[in-house]
Computed example of a mutant assay.
Amino acid sequence: MLEKILEHYQPFQPVVLFDPENDSLLAMDFTDRNTTLTAEILDDTQKFTDYVNQLLTDHECRFGIGGYAEHRTIYSRSEHFSTADEPRRLHLGIDIWGAPGTPVFAPMEGTVHSFRFNDIHGDYGATIILRHQLEGHVFHTLYGHLSLRDLEGLQENMRIVAGQQIAHFGDIPENGHWPPHLHFQIITDMEGNKGDYPGVCRYSEREKYLANCPDPNIILQMIP
């Protein structure tokens, strides 16, 4: 139901400033099919960052993108995604990889649902969650790996207008220790969470989480 409403509501304001006429996007694969992404690279955040930046440079792309419903090997780099019986590996959002400080905008009007500095290696780092309502349906958009300064002055229920700049891509010390990027996710039911919601789930729980977190490209409109 939410997907149909969002498709009907098009177009949204851009989440990042991307001109399809002049800018190129690089589809990035972080599954085990990508054999160039070695354990040595993943275990060193600076080497991982250099790897991403070199790919963007080599392909003359401003942004790298991808990841929704992708079963990723990269989460082995952090104990944050480990569990007793099954690790979390299935990605629930879309990542936009780019330069630190890249501005982030609200795609539609809403309010601040919550925010938090999730300061654990591999986590979101600085995080903002917005609440939206369309045709009586409430849903949320999550923005992870932001700059810590973007949380200053925020208040829950603060009104946000469509197209308003709300954040920036954070750098390594403040973004959960990842190469700079934005994790963008749609969440129907926050399930009582504030300032955080799983962006990665166990593969065995994929049906539940993918149903609650539809494809973010419905809003982003960046992947053909």
Rank of each mutant, 00 (worst) to 15 (best):
N193D: 04
W178C: 03
T83Y: 05
N118V: 07
G192L: 14
N34Y: 02
D215N: 15
D123N: 08
R131Y: 05
H71C: 15
H140Q: 07
H80V: 00
T38S: 02
T141W: 04
E174W: 10
I223W: 14
G67D: 06
T73P: 00
L6C: 11
Q13S: 14
D23A: 03
F139S: 06
Y51A: 00
P14E: 14
H8Q: 04
D196S: 05
D50M: 15
Y197D: 15
Y203R: 02
Y203P: 00
I166T: 06
H121C: 00
F184S: 02
L92M: 06
E7A: 07
Y203N: 02
E79K: 14
L154R: 10
K208T: 09
D150V: 02
D189F: 11
P224V: 08
R149D: 13
L220T: 10
E174L: 01
P180S: 03
V200R: 03
Q165N: 04
I187E: 08
G153Y: 05
R159T: 06
T31M: 05
D23C: 02
K4H: 07
L210C: 08
G64R: 01
R72N: 00
R116S: 12
A106E: 13
S82L: 07
D150Y: 01
W178N: 02
D50C: 07
K47R: 14
D123R: 03
L142M: 13
H8M: 06
E207C: 11
P173T: 15
A99Q: 09
F169I: 11
H140N: 08
P107A: 13
E174T: 06
L182Y: 11
L154V: 03
M108E: 09
P179W: 01
E152P: 00
G144L: 01
D85V: 15
I186G: 08
Y124A: 04
D119R: 05
Q155V: 10
H59G: 12
L142D: 08
E109Q: 12
D32C: 00
T127N: 09
I219P: 01
N34P: 13
R206I: 06
K208G: 03
W97S: 02
P14Q: 13
G195Y: 14
K208M: 06
L182M: 13
Q165Y: 05
R72D: 01
V52S: 15
P224T: 07
E7T: 06
S204E: 06
N118F: 03
T49K: 05
A39G: 01
T83R: 03
C61M: 14
L6Y: 12
I219V: 06
